[in-house]
Design a protein around this nucleic acid. Structure first.
Lengths: 197, 197
DNA sequence: CTACAATACGGACCCGGGGTCCGCTTCGCA
DNA sequence: TGCGAAGCGGACCCCGGGTCCGTATTGTAG
């Protein structure tokens, strides 16, 4: 695993592509309007370069997404309350969900592109497993959650589904819901799910 | 709105296409493996015919889906309890959700194809609005549901998200959950959401 | 400074799938 | 039985993801 360091031009081009792609995804309405050729052109680079650097479309999108997600991911994994692991489950769950929702809102196009990438479902494209495991674990830590016969794994799936990019897009876009309305709605729903505990 | 009746051969071909498509979607694993040309060939028909009859890929899939969905739709709209409108909300909601889940399970490929059709989200492809309105209305009819500040519209979205085809596919496919496990999970979750009422 | 691998570049090219077009066929009404 | 209209079908177009390979750059060894 020596991870031979890449050549200078390769690194520069990789960065250029990332930047260009970021711009394009942000500017163009609709995630799928952006073509690989567009990105290559915008980055002043040949298509071959682009594919060598990222493998395929999904790889590129994933790289972008990961970059954006990283600070948030760290905050949840090792940060301070209310997101970090030292938070009591009852506070942590709504906090994480709210943060996740905000993240999706702030990165609509990108999230949409990623979740619609791997044969059209986020269950293969993203780091879905990690989030699910986290939520399930937190739920299981909620005192008395399992008492009603509730399945933490299933509940975690549903709560994640509540923050899916296309749902968020639908609510914020077609239905014209504001950011705060969405957050309030999710918070109320989460509270209700936790309520029986 | 005279709806001039179609010619005999047109009707026959339409039916043949529908049948062929149904077979193909059922037999082939993976919904997107089925190409329009495949369907046309299997139906013994030219591509032109196929597109004339259904407009485009989504149109065809929607037609198939609608045909499958019709009995279920009727049962919910005008049928007897526990699905029909005469059912008290507290029983009707879980019943409808369970039926919806079963429907998705029984029509995995098709539902997957449809929900992944209209630019990748079910919010434009299916009859999403109708289901959402129904669920929201039922939820609003649950005595005391809104007391906790819960938003029936949002809750309806989330509950629908719990029966999305790709989630169901993920759970039943990758995670190997059985039909009964899924139904139990959904029922428990639904109960919890209603629980505070 | 030069030579020479190794690595990267880039755009012409390929391929597969959705959707269209138009000359020919079939239908069905009088 | 004739004749418009409706329908047919498959060759064709387009577009986008992904590949290939001759050429250019890099960086290291001498």
């Amino acid at each position: 695993m020596a991870e031979r360091k890449p050549r200078k031009d390769a690194a520069r081009n990789r960065a250029a592509v990332l930047a260009a792609a970021d711009d394009l995804f942000a500017s163009r309405e609709g995630a799928e309007e952006v073509t690989m050729a567009d990105i290559a052109a915008a980055a002043g680079v040949g298509k071959g370069t682009l594919f060598r650097a990222f493998g395929d479309r999904v790889g590129l999108i994933r790289a972008l997404y990961q970059a954006r997600l990283e600070p948030f991911g760290k905050a949840v994994e090792t940060g301070p309350p209310p997101l970090g692991p030292d938070t009591p489950p009852l506070q942590r769950l709504p906090a994480v969900l709210d943060a996740l929702l905000c993240f999706k809102l702030d990165n609509r196009q990108l999230a949409l592109a990623l979740e619609g990438a791997g044969s059209g479902s986020p269950y293969q494209a993203g780091h879905y497993e990690q989030w699910h495991t986290l939520l399930r674990t937190v739920l299981e830590g909620v005192p008395g959650f399992a008492d009603g016969g509730a399945d933490a794994g299933f509940a975690a799936h549903v709560l994640l589904a509540a923050t899916r990019a296309d749902l968020v897009e639908h609510l914020a876009g077609q239905e014209g819901a504001t950011r705060e309305e969405l957050r309030a709605g999710l918070a109320a729903f989460t509270a209700r799910v936790l309520g029986g505990a």
